[in-house]
Design a protein around this nucleic acid. Structure first.
Lengths: 155, 155
DNA sequence: CCTACTGTCTCGAACATCGAGATGATCGCC
DNA sequence: GGCGATCATCTCGATGTTCGAGACAGTAGG
């Protein structure tokens, strides 16, 4: 089994398992469910891009029905991780704002991971990182194809 | 944001999201839950290594209580994906055997993904694949550290 | 003002998971 | 052989998450 191809595919799966485990650990540490963590990450990512997520947008981001989103936001709001804020322009909408405590908790946890990952990258020069980046891009594209239709344009 | 480091970290996260989506798609296609898919994968991996998983081992593999494992195996057995088989040597144990239909369904779905991934690797030469492999190994190690203790040996 | 439409929330039911305890099979020791 | 300890599994009641259907504001256009 010298073939690096099979080993790389295996590594990708293992990496996926470990990343899930990281999310699970964060969830357990803060008394949250997995869905709650995914939602929190989605809201934080949106906030990082400068736009606040609405309840509906969060629902489609994490593939949840509107009823589940309401329950989800209820849980998150009850423990003080997010706030509901009525959009003054369209008063039907409810924007979701992350509390500072949740933001810093997330930054501490995932920021530490990011820091370690960057440290790993220190072992690679620019050309090598470019190779890694290209591989990850192509691999992500292929995986995304399988995620949306069981048979991508490949036949 | 030319820094390839931040972009690679982002790509890893996106890859994780897409891989989860693949699992979710497989689950939906076969009328299963996410836990069921994880369990099926664990059983298949064990079978691929030549050893049949017991119910207890499955429970610790997917971090589930014994009660949940019973319900899980019930569901899987009801739809014909696994069989309960008493271990003749230690008759307390119940080994789990995957049915051929489930095995071939999994092989078709994930095998197709693997095939496409290998095709992607065709765009890389041996030296580049070695770089990718080394990166994935180190990254997995770092992530695994964060998965088990929020603060790895780094201080 | 009335209608169509959108975004969010409430209600009831289904399902997965858990903790505690019961059952059955096996092992070690006397 | 017999008896308690141990291990793997199953049953039961309770909790929490999810969904579908429908109710309740709010908006846009005639």
């Amino acid at each position: 089994m010298d073939d690096p191809r099979a080993e790389i595919a295996l590594l990708l799966r293992r990496l996926n398992v470990e990343l899930d485990a990281v999310a699970a650990r964060f969830a357990e540490l803060h008394g949250l469910g997995r869905t709650d963590v995914r939602a929190l990450v989605a809201i934080m990512d949106a906030a990082r891009r400068g736009q606040a997520l609405t309840a509906g947008a969060l629902g489609s981001a994490v593939e949840l029905s509107s009823a589940s989103v309401t329950a989800l936001v209820d849980r998150l709001e009850r423990v003080g991780h997010v706030r509901r804020v009525r959009d003054p322009e369209d008063r039907r909408r409810v924007a979701l704002e992350i509390s500072d405590s949740a933001m810093s908790a997330g930054a501490e946890f995932f920021g530490g991971l990011q820091r370690d990952l960057v440290a790993v990258m220190g072992d690679f020069d620019e050309a090598e990182l470019a190779v890694v980046r290209r591989f990850l891009q192509e691999a992500t594209g292929v995986v995304a194809g399988h995620a949306r239709a069981s048979g991508p344009p490949v036949c």
